[in-house]
Amino acid sequence: MADTEADKRGYLWEDFRVFHLKDSRGQTLREHYHEFDKLTLCLGGRVTYVVEGVTYFLRPWDLLLVQHGLIHRVSIDPAEPYERIVLWLGRDWLARRSTEDAPLAACFDRTRERNFHLLRFTPEQRLTYMRLLQPLEESLRSREFGSGLLADTLCQQLLIQVNRDVGRDRTAEQTDSYRCDPKIEEVLRYIGRHLSEPLDVDALSRRFYLSRYYLMHRFKAVTGYTLHQYITQKRLLRAGELIRSGQPVMKAAELAGFQDYSTFLRAFRNTFHTSPREFYSRGEKRSLFHDAHVD
């Protein structure tokens, strides 16, 4: 399956898409987020990922789960080529392939809830994933009868395995795999749960017993965003979710924490490059994530 430059910059045209990439240049991709869910399996290189303020130091055969709407960035060390397999997953497809007792997106929900997104595999697990990924890649390249159906089935099988492994994973106990700032993590969690309420630097600094200066500078150092930028982006994502679910635009803006509708419209257009009504009708198949490459 050929990958055009547009594909690599964030458009999901299919139910799911697989990339197998290898880069030898060092770079840091700025903070961004997706409207779809994503798995990144590191096969080689020295890579640092930051997801919602938690820094992960990837090793070969580490799997990173990044749910839609999570802000993240990646830094690639040029000393070693960065090879990875990236799987983009459409949320509609995940829902259609799920059952009530086996929602395929549960692995993303779980990693988001605990704010830990890394799986570090044992040698036995590596072999299992190799056996799952190789035929998936082959079926996507094939033009034989039923190859698309086979790929769909294999992708479901892969997600079932990921869900099982997330449920019993203990990677978080390996302190060399990640670094976080507990206080900023608290602030991020609070923001995510109180988007509809007034949120400003002074109120947050009082709530978490931090000086205004320290909170502003530490937050930017950990997340890459100013506090105001982060809250605005999270509110826009929340508003987008509400609009997609059928909520009237003005009500969605209010529920997401925007007190001024004109400010909301301007920020929405600047972020999504479309109006809220067009955003609703556009659907997920063409979801843009800020012009970032496949990471």
Rank of each mutant, 00 (worst) to 15 (best):
R235L: 11
E197P: 07
V187K: 00
Q233E: 15
Y209W: 09
R193Q: 14
E173Y: 10
K220D: 09
L236K: 01
S196E: 14
D176R: 05
D200R: 11
H228V: 11
L199I: 05
T171C: 05
L188C: 06
R235K: 13
L204K: 10
T175D: 12
G224H: 10
T226G: 12
V201R: 15
D200G: 10
P198V: 07
P198S: 03
L215K: 01
T223S: 11
Q229D: 15
S211P: 05
R170Q: 15
R238M: 15
V201P: 12
E197T: 10
Y209P: 04
V222H: 00
Q229T: 09
P182I: 05
A203I: 06
S196P: 05
A221N: 08
R212V: 07
R218G: 00
L210I: 04
R207C: 07
D202T: 02
Y190V: 04
S177T: 10
R193D: 02
E185G: 14
L237D: 05
Y230P: 04
T223R: 13
E185T: 13
H228E: 14
Q174M: 08
H194V: 01
C180S: 14
R218Q: 09
L195S: 03
V222G: 01
L210N: 01
R179N: 08
K234H: 06
T226I: 07
Y209V: 11
F219K: 00
T175I: 04
A221K: 12
G192D: 14
I231R: 03
K183Y: 02
S205E: 12
L199N: 02
K220H: 13
L210A: 02
T232P: 00
Y213N: 03
Y214Q: 08
V201L: 15
Y225N: 13
E186W: 07
A203F: 07
T171H: 02
